[in-house]
Amino acid sequence: MSEIELKSEYYKTLEENLEKYCIPIEAIAKAKESIQGPEEALFELLVFLIT
């Protein structure tokens, strides 16, 4: 259900982050924890702060 996906200037998917930080797309599986982990953790923190 793609219309349900969260879109924001302040939230990036792993692919978007790889592009943003100029990391080769081949690193996608390896970068999940170190690059996307913080994105998700920051989202969780935001939710904690706004609720």
């Binding site: 879109k7 924001s8 200037e9 302040y10 939230y11 989202f43 935001l46 702060l49 706004i50």
Partner: peptide, 12 residues
Amino acid sequence: NDPVKVCWEKVI
């Protein structure tokens, strides 16, 4: 338009 943006820029 972008609720998460409003969270960071206004609500926080």
